[in-house]
Design a protein around this nucleic acid. Structure first.
Lengths: 270, 270
DNA sequence: AACAGCGTTTCAACAGTCGAAACCCGGAGG
DNA sequence: CCTCCGGGTTTCGACTGTTGAAACGCTGTT
């Protein structure tokens, strides 16, 4: 299909990748989004051949990363992925520390509480606690969102390295709703605003009728390593509510940062 | 280490395995047990070369399955593994259904509650809820235990296909404690006992001074797909306590089975 | 009875992978 | 200040494991 052979040119990126492993990784992620898919479907979804998909699945099954269904026609994630996830959660100071914070955020705001980290030019939801209310926004760990839209994601962008900000600003800004930021000038103003306010309120930038409030999470180096936020339907998120939520979220984010070893700097900003 | 090259002989097992993917899988599992390890350590631990390990890590990092530490000298599981684990948990009816059962088991018994599935000739802990008491057995999702020793594991063995039972009985029975079953005759008697009692009590077979009670979990086909159990220090697990716990565990296992679609057969056993 | 669609198997050619060894770099020791 | 040491990174070419295509058999459908 593609031929990324430019080893010596600008991006030495894939000089060391083991293609089969990368394909297997993609296959796993695809399978996570298409439970109970068959070989053919997965082959199509990942853009490879049936044979390869079959062999990758075979290999992954052997290692417990994938499970064949009883009637042997469909595949699902295997129990070993649970193990990885669990160990990962235990080992990650960020996630382990954030979990109780998410819980108390939900208690206080009664809305979904989420934690995002940056992965390249996307934000990845790595932890989440759902609102107890029946009307709530569907969210899931693993959700990938472009950095230029949404609350937590824009926070991540606001504090991301310049290269990343440039890359995002340069790239096309796909529009999900009429409110999605679509020009880099207003985006960069929004980012500046986030840095001075210390939080963000984003309304309907990804999905209409949803609103999110988010604030940065820092580690001992002072760098922003995650964004903590809540989201809910605009119907409930009146100005008064979001103003209160902003304080709650900021204080939760500061608490989390402190638990991660961050100490407020002398000038409050770098 | 080994050289499984017998493609055409008895076991056509690894005819389809993609070696690099298998190695990557092993690497991930190794990393789960050796957080913050470096390239050299991991290479040694997985029995491969530095170059290969480096490239696998590079590839996995690219896909978010591993993360390099700030100073770029150590590796950890990445956030994408969280995603897989989370999706896997949501998608697995067994795990999703078992979680509340584990919770109520802990409430009732005040001991660790665990769920095991069989993976080859080992039992794998796939879900767990810890005892609220300070003195408790250390347990973790991902723990692999041979089927011939321990509570939940022996339950799995008791209902495993004949080939598996034969393989385990044939293989060497490594002794972890003086109580570890060590001859296949008494093991097979113990399994028979489990099948007629519908539960098992295992004392100190893996670790001294620990005791576990477990019972089988069935799905709609009537097959045993998991074992549910509790474990705790023998100091607390007196006969009276374990007798009560046996009933609690059996009823929890039956409830879980029912939730999974199992219906008690006319004769109660097949 | 023929078909369609799926997962599985085979095969040979070739691209990709891999081990070995050189390389770089930071820190410890002389 | 230089050397050494032990990590991680990079290079290289031979070889082998990997791959796409196409055939196969099975199951459920028309």
């Amino acid at each position: 299909m593609n031929g990324p052979k430019e080893r010596k040119t600008g991006d030495p990126g894939d000089a060391y990748v083991v293609a089969s492993v990368e394909r297997a990784a993609q296959l796993l992620l695809t399978l996570a989004e298409m439970p109970d898919a068959g070989v053919t479907d997965l082959a199509e979804a990942t853009g490879t051949t049936k044979s390869l998909t079959f062999r990758l699945l075979y290999t992954l099954e052997r290692n417990g990363f994938v499970r064949k269904d009883a009637e042997r026609r469909t595949y699902t994630l295997g129990y070993r992925t649970l193990v990885l996830g669990d160990q990962s959660r235990r080992q990650s100071q960020l996630i382990a520390t954030a979990e109780p914070v998410l819980e108390s955020l939900v208690e206080e705001t009664r809305e979904n509480a989420l934690l995002f980290v940056r992965e390249g030019t996307k934000g990845l939801c790595v932890a989440l606690r759902e609102s107890p209310q029946p009307l709530r926004i569907f969210a899931s760990v693993g959700r990938l969102v472009p950095l230029y839209a949404g609350g937590a994601t824009k926070v991540l962008l606001a504090y991301a390295p310049d290269e990343v900000q440039a890359e995002v600003a340069a790239g096309p800004l796909e529009r999900f709703t009429p409110s999605t930021p679509s020009d880099s000038a207003s985006l960069s103003a929004a980012l500046e605003r986030i840095r001075s306010d210390g939080y963000v309120r984003s309304v309907g930038e990804i999905e209409p009728d949803t609103c999110s409030i988010a604030a940065p999470v820092r580690d001992q180096t002072g760098g922003v390593i995650a964004a903590l936020g809540v989201n809910g339907p605009t119907a409930r998120m009146t100005d008064a509510v979001t103003d209160a939520a902003a304080l709650t979220v900021m204080s939760a984010a500061a608490g989390l940062s402190r638990a991660l070893g961050w100490r407020p700097g002398p000038t409050g900003m770098g």
